[in-house]
């Protein structure tokens, strides 16, 4: 087939699958949370409540699309689009299988970091444009939280980059033929997991939203599909971080017997479920605790991990 056409097909398939999966995640999360809290969750609409998402979508599309009169209109409209754009763009560099990857580049990880740091704008601008004190507090928390956790998120990935000798995600997966990087890079994995939760603003690090303190944080003033964009954007972020964890530390598509695509889906799904379990089990830390853990513990740990990995790689190379 024509390579351009093939690429377009791959892009469309990934876009469709990722968007539908993140929509289904809303259902999965509610069911799993219910399961872990001894409830049922949505089980009325359709088989196992699967059509609940469709019902929610219909509702959210037909809601009044309200822009507060005191808001900065253009920034207010533009902000939810940024998070969708940045997260969806990052899926371009994720190697789902050897064939199923939109673009192969030697700066894939840096691209992910750049996009995730641009994602902060969405939150900050939404918070500022809402012209609401709760929103602004949420936005400030989001900005400082995501900036500080981004620092050691990048550093925690560098161990795998050193072991694989490339920023290219495909090379990183191929370097895990013999041993998954989670074993030599366990500290890096834990740090990346924590940073990933903070980056997606999921519980227990959902301080920008913190509905028990800040109404709904940065998206207090949003309604209808603009709120839906933040909502789906969060789940897209969960899928993205789960896929990245499985690619960086758990050998991506590599695995015995089953075809590659099944392996990557299984691994990603496992981490998605883990994210939901975290939400079910963890309390929310205070904001100053969050910041001081980030800077006083996690950053030095990731630096130490980097130094040790570098020393070992250097010693082995000799």
């Amino acid at each position: 087939m024509n390579p351009t056409l093939l690429k377009i097909v791959v892009i469309l398939v990934i876009l469709l699958v990722v968007l539908n999966v993140s929509a289904l995640l809303i259902w999965l999360e509610r069911r799993l949370l219910a399961l872990w809290q001894d409830r049922y969750g949505p089980n009325r609409v359709g088989p196992f409540g699967l059509l609940q998402v469709v019902a929610d979508m219909i509702k959210i599309f037909f809601k009044e699309d309200w822009i507060p009169p005191f808001a900065d209109k253009w920034v207010f409209v533009f902000a939810p689009a940024i998070i969708m754009i940045t997260v969806l763009l990052t899926f371009a560099v994720i190697p789902f299988t050897p064939l199923f990857q939109i673009t192969e580049t030697n700066i894939a990880l840096l691209f992910f970091l750049g996009m995730s740091s641009l994602g902060v704008y969405s939150i900050v601008l939404a918070a500022w444009a809402s012209n609401n004190k709760y929103s602004l507090l949420g936005g400030m928390r989001a900005a400082s939280q995501m900036l500080s956790y981004e620092v050691f998120m990048g550093l925690s990935m560098m161990g795998t980059v050193m072991l694989a000798g490339s920023f290219s995600l495909r090379r990183i997966v191929e370097a895990q033929q013999h041993i998954w990087f989670v074993i030599p890079q366990f500290l890096g994995f834990v740090l990346f997991l924590i940073a990933g939760i903070a980056e997606t603003r999921r519980l227990p690090f959902d301080l920008p939203e913190a509905e028990s303190e800040l109404v709904a944080g940065f998206h207090s003033e949003y309604s209808g599909m603009k709120f839906g964009m933040f909502f789906v954007g969060e789940y897209l972020g969960v899928v993205l971080i789960s896929a990245l964890i499985s690619v960086l530390f758990f050998g991506g598509w590599l695995g015995p017997v089953l075809p590659p695509v099944v392996w990557i889906v299984l691994k990603t799904l496992f981490f998605i479920c883990f994210f939901i379990l975290l939400r079910a089990a963890m309390p929310r830390p205070r904001f100053d605790q969050l910041m001081s853990w980030g800077w006083k513990w996690l950053l030095p740990l990731s630096l130490a991990n980097l130094a040790i990995t570098g020393a070992v790689v250097l010693a082995r190379g000799r």
Binding site: G114, S117, V120
Partner: peptide, 11 residues
């Protein structure tokens, strides 16, 4: 993107 657009401008 990471340093200027992502970090400094956000600050």
């Amino acid at each position: 993107v990471i340093v200027y657009a992502g970090a400094i401008m956000v600050l």
